[in-house]
Nucleic acid binder design. Structure first.
Lengths: 195, 195
DNA sequence: CCAAAAGTGTTCGTTGTACACCCATGC
DNA sequence: GCATGGGTGTACAACGAACACTTTTGG
């Protein structure tokens, strides 16, 4: 759409009258990209009257955390193409989508500092190094390995006997997130983790 | 409106086609309560299809921080009455407004831990004790005076020579928030304050 | 003088940072 | 053996919690 004809945009579409917001976000993402079973997190809502050339559009932005190797994207519906793009190398996007992306990244960081939404982004079993790399990406800073491990002691993890396979170094132990323990801690208001 | 006829509700109304979201939030608040010149902060957006008996309504919630002594509220437009209510003593509200209020309080706390939005809530010049009481309310916990003062060293404040008047104890020094220094720190990505 | 709140210093335990070191695996 | 990342310990600095203490005002 003029004047944004050849620019990339964040997937988005109109909501149906009888679905709730998360459902709409998941449906639209699926229709345009084929991404399925993604846990979406609400970020912010954008509503400047002139942000869309065709008229008044209010956009509710959602983000999700996932490992792109685990999913396959395929443009469908009216999407011409789909592509993964690094946040650190973002081109000009259509509409106010650069602004939306920046605000949403800020919200992601804000939430990640206070709750481990990141577990949606890791496979069910993960190594502590994968866990650390996720935080390093999201916070855009490096952490010391030993110190990172001390810091996450407050996050309830389940250590498995299972180990990494097919790596050409000492295989790492696999962990998973103890959601039950986490929710119990939240319920008792004992959650103190801060990155 | 049935079945919520005799319940309190958070002020809200429909947005106009040509105003942006903050403007609408401020206008609606002013029309219903007379509150004017309030800085509003966006919280979350609620859109379950059945949350309003008359049909599909999507609500974008906003909160503001202010000192209620500094403002006078007066029901107007279609509002029958207006009242300040303590968060800790909240009655049943119409629609899903209790849910909205709880989520919005959580968002306030999340934001307050990472940025001093609280300065909108204090008078231009304030004592450190007023400052502390604000955090104590928002975080719902008491802080030690000496320790609180050490903690806020990272927040840029301007100390004035002026002092409290007409108090029957040692008058406290007045401070104000150094917004320029704050924005400079943000710009340089040197902001580290965490409550 | 006392009451009340302002404002500061000290101690001690916890946490964060920097860095060194050993361990297990593939080649 | 070597390279690679996994995994842990230590020492010191920084920070937080608890608490005591002095200061300045009004009455």
């Amino acid at each position: 759409m003029e004047p944004f004809e050849n620019l990339w945009a964040i997937p988005g579409d109109l909501i149906y009258p009888d679905e709730n917001l998360e459902q709409a976000a998941e449906r639209v993402l699926f229709e345009l990209t084929g991404l399925n079973n993604i846990v979406m997190h609400q970020s912010q809502t954008f509503g400047k009257p002139d942000r869309h050339p065709q008229g008044r559009v209010i956009t509710i932005s959602y983000f999700a955390l996932l490992r792109i190797e685990d999913f396959e994207v395929k443009a469908s519906s009216w999407a011409g193409d789909v592509q993964w793009v690094s946040l650190k190398n973002m081109p000009d996007l259509a509409f106010d989508h650069n602004h939306i992306l920046n605000s949403t990244y800020e919200m992601l960081k804000l939430k990640l500092q206070n709750e481990p939404i990141c577990f949606d982004m890791l496979p069910e079993r993960f190594t502590l190094n994968e866990f650390q790399q996720l935080y390093e990406f999201a916070m855009d800073q490096a952490f010391d390995k030993a110190n990172f491990r001390k810091k996450i002691k407050n996050i309830p993890l389940i250590a498995h006997d299972e180990k990494q396979q097919n790596v050409k170094h000492r295989p790492a132990k696999l962990f998973s997130f103890d959601k039950d323990a986490y929710h119990e801690i939240i319920r008792q208001n004992r959650y103190t983790f801060k990155m």
